[in-house]
């Protein structure tokens, strides 16, 4: 930082009288010997003087006398409970507790999820699941081969990866359901839209993490972030409309607003704009909301085939 840069950083404080005595004396001494800074300061003062001449039109006494009435009319349109102020206060109080309980539950669930998925020991890549029938015919094989004579000679044991065990009680003649099919019955279209929404949320999460943790000075990386944010914004409405889950819709809408901000960062990596985006993500707990949504959407799947 050059000497002039140092004093330039003080100019707005000097303009509005926010420099303490020591800094003001130092600043004025510098201006006395630096024509460039003196000229810059003069320009600032001139601009401030021009802006001080701006006048704000007053709507007039009649407007102010009717302001409360207009406000009441708007409230009546928006919320019929306006007159019951205490209810709002109570609702706020209950809401605060609700948020706290939800936050605790979310943290516990996050811990459980991390424990199960991240910290769990890696499963044996190809454990043998021997699910033999009394006649030594593997049940899975029996399930997939309903017409096969189960009294035939014993077949070799079926070795399957642990993640794709066959159900032990699948009725003969029906194909075994896939391992990862959710328990709830949902149409393929619904599942597809949910999957799309969750992919969108996951991609947004990755982008936000990159923005939150990246170096704002890295303009190349931010150009990529901006591009990705723009891509996500362009499909946000279709993702939102494709989902019939209100919470997902709200989250996608919230993400869209933030992504739009990222996509419209003016130049390269505007550090101020990035900081505003980061503080917004923090303030609104966006990443936590994403985690909660991901846990919520991790629907129960059918349990592994138990061994009799």
């Amino acid at each position: 930082m050059t000497t002039c840069d140092r004093y330039q950083a003080w100019m707005v404080e000097a303009l509005y009288g926010e420099l303490d005595d020591a800094r003001r004396a130092e600043f004025e001494a510098h201006l006395a010997g630096c024509a460039d800074c003196a000229a810059a300061m003069h320009e600032l003062r001139t601009t401030a003087g021009l802006m001080s001449r701006r006048r704000r039109p007053d709507p007039g006494a009649e407007y102010w006398n009717g302001y409360w009435q207009k406000l009441q009319q708007r409230v009546a349109r928006e919320d019929s409970t306006f007159v019951d102020a205490s209810r709002f206060a109570r609702r706020r109080s209950l809401g605060s507790w609700g948020y706290r309980v939800a936050a605790v539950v979310a943290l516990l669930a996050a811990g459980a999820w991390i424990g199960r998925t991240v910290l769990a020991p890696t499963p044996n890549p190809a454990p043998v699941v021997a699910t033999t029938t009394p006649d030594s015919t593997p049940r899975a094989l029996a399930a997939h081969q309903p017409s096969q004579d189960t009294t035939a000679a014993p077949a070799p044991e079926v070795a399957q990866p642990r993640r794709e065990p066959a159900p032990i009680d699948a009725p003969a003649g029906e194909p075994a359901p896939a391992r990862d099919v959710p328990v709830e019955n949902e149409s393929p279209a619904v599942l597809a839209s949910q999957s799309e929404a969750h992919r969108y949320i996951e991609r947004s999460q990755l982008l936000l993490l990159a923005v939150m943790n990246g170096d704002p000075a890295d303009s190349t990386a931010f150009d990529i972030h901006k591009q990705r944010a723009g891509e996500l914004v362009s499909v946000a409405s279709s993702v939102r409309e494709g989902s019939d889950d209100r919470r997902v819709q709200e989250l996608v809408a919230q993400l869209e607003l933030i992504l739009r901000e990222i996509a419209h960062i003016e130049q390269g990596s505007d550090a101020d704009a990035v900081e505003l985006i980061r503080s917004r993500v923090d303030r609104e707990g966006v990443l936590l909301r994403i985690n909660v949504e991901q846990m919520r959407s991790a629907k129960p799947t059918q349990t592994d085939g138990a061994i009799d």
Partner: peptide, 10 residues
């Protein structure tokens, strides 16, 4: 003012 009214508890 509407927001203030609703958030006065905070």
């Amino acid at each position: 003012f509407i927001k203030a009214f609703r958030a006065i508890g905070s």
